[in-house]
Design a protein around this nucleic acid. Structure first.
Lengths: 221, 221
DNA sequence: ACTGTTCGTATAACACTGTTACAGAGGCCC
DNA sequence: GGGCCTCTGTAACAGTGTTATACGAACAGT
């Protein structure tokens, strides 16, 4: 009789699930998209994949590495968008705003990148697309790199502003409350404008265009 | 004999330490400055104050509130710096760069603000100083608020860039490695410039000035 | 067919984290 | 004295990232 039958069960130390690193990263990305950055827990992800926690570690090494891989995966998904516009300035601004929009649309992953300090990883494709357009516009070398970085700075700052969640800190520290109670002598109209919720998309677009105009020469005509 | 002598010991549930909320916040700020944002643990802070962990909660409510208070305290420390320059543009740019410099000098707290999404709390004094200078330059209402926010976006983005720590993500994702291996057709000079470590201070100063020039009219003379 | 090595996985634990339930002293007011 | 409020300690809960260990399955060599 089969004392220890060793039946081909699908649970136990020896079973192979055919899991690969890419599968783990994909599942992690999916989990973050579905349930937000805080849901990305090693045990939670392991459960999602019907696997034990150490298996995750075997495949991806550590949580930091996993997050970096997830952010990179998202960055590559964002990279494909076509650039619009006819003049060099329009095309450069378009490249910048596309990635901004893509990051906004996928809030959870962008937040994850922020929390872990990997924003620059997420935005790397933006830099690449920018560099391509900037070189097409005639820039090269350090001038080109500086222009790309300046635009990147604006997009990064805009993302921080757009993704901030005032519900996380206490009532008294909400921006509008802060402005309403500021003792500095501010004109009433200005104070009201500061208390109101900003139109971040418009602000971003205008600021990006200003910085682009500062670096990209106007088209010769 | 004193069976339960209740000697005036300085340990036990009933003792008063004279601790106040402000002390807790100050100790937390000090701890972060000395040992970095990750050292700010409720138990660690409690040990630092020679007190039990629940005492911290009694005074500050939760970690989120504590962090917000710490960031606010740092923000107020940053607010005092005098603004330099004679023309309105110079003065506005000076106010922005002062806070940028202050945030850079206190990396740990700035990182803490970043990780917890309270950057806008840290930068609020910047906004206030900016608004004062912008109004002095003749701006008011929405135009003034937009200008302040645009400049704030640049400073925020610059801080993210300046504080990123490449040692946190794996070798293959370091910016220079990424650029060296990018398959896009980039001119060699540009590629070299992208691989090099950027001069973030100079980049920030130039970008701030560009955005300031976009919002603040040139001085009538 | 037998071995031995490598791969991939599970169980169980460690050292943490934020947070809270509870109890109990000390001071205050009546 | 009694009662209340303030503050504090002990102990725990549920959760985190991570690792030591063991163990089965697949493959390689003879």
């Amino acid at each position: 009789m089969g004392t220890t039958a060793t039946k081909p069960t699908d649970a136990g130390p020896g079973r192979r699930t055919g899991l690969e690193r890419a599968d783990v990263v994909a599942a992690a990305l999916d989990l973050v998209v579905r349930e937000g950055p805080d849901a990305l827990t090693m045990r939670r992800l392991a459960t999602e994949l019907d696997v034990g926690a150490p298996t995750i570690y075997w495949h991806v090494g550590s949580r930091d590495e996993l997050v970096a891989a997830v952010v990179r995966a998202q960055a590559e998904r964002l990279a494909g968008r076509p650039v619009a516009g006819t003049t060099p300035r329009e095309r450069v601004a378009s490249a910048a705003l596309h990635i901004y929009a893509g990051a906004i649309e996928n809030r959870p992953i962008t937040s994850l990148a922020h929390q872990t300090g990997t924003t620059s990883l997420l935005l790397h494709p933006l830099e690449a697309a920018l560099v391509a357009e900037l070189e097409a516009a005639g820039l090269a070398g350090p001038a080109c790199a500086d222009a790309a970085r300046a635009i990147l700075v604006v997009v990064t700052g805009a993302l921080v502003l757009a993704l901030r969640d005032p519900s996380r800190f206490p009532e008294a520290y909400r921006p509008d409350v802060l402005w309403a109670g500021a003792e500095a002598p501010i004109a009433p109209a200005t104070r009201a404008a500061l208390c109101a919720e900003p139109d971040i998309d418009a602000l971003t677009a205008a600021t990006v265009r200003a910085v682009v105009a500062h670096h990209v020469p106007e088209e010769a005509q």
